[in-house]
């Protein structure tokens, strides 16, 4: 039985963009998760989500692994870039799209 750490690591590697959120893109269960997903939907890049409400073990452990206390948590190419505030700030300052473009340009 894979443990929670392995589950988290495989989710983080599941796609170039991975969002650990409350709920799902179509039924977000928290305003911050909804706002974050809307930003990524508007940018048009594919992304993978994990509903931490359905995975209480991930919800409990991820903050310690990522050293970030809240949700949502957005990973790009395996690296945490932030929660709702940071993603929104990067988006409004035009830093998010170039970051994603370069992530998808790399072959690996």
């Amino acid at each position: 039985m894979t443990n929670t750490t392995e589950k988290i690591q495989s989710e983080i590697r599941a796609d170039k963009i991975v969002i650990f959120m409350k709920g799902t893109p179509d039924f977000p269960q928290c305003g911050f998760s909804a706002k974050t997903v809307e930003i990524f939907k508007s940018l048009g890049f594919p992304f993978h989500t994990v509903d931490i409400l359905a995975h209480p073990d991930i919800r409990a452990l991820l903050p310690q692994i990522s050293n970030w206390p809240t949700f949502p948590q957005v990973f790009v190419k395996g690296k945490l870039i932030g929660g709702c505030d940071i993603v929104s700030e990067m988006h409004s300052e035009g830093q998010l799209k170039p970051l994603l473009e370069s992530a998808f340009k790399d072959s690996k």
Binding site: P69, G82, I86, M90
Partner: peptide
């Protein structure tokens, strides 16, 4: 430092106040 690293530094500076 990236934005996330800056915010993590602030979180860490709060200690038990969090």
């Amino acid at each position: 430092k990236t934005l996330i690293e800056q915010h993590q530094m602030v979180h860490a500076s709060l200690g038990p106040l969090k």
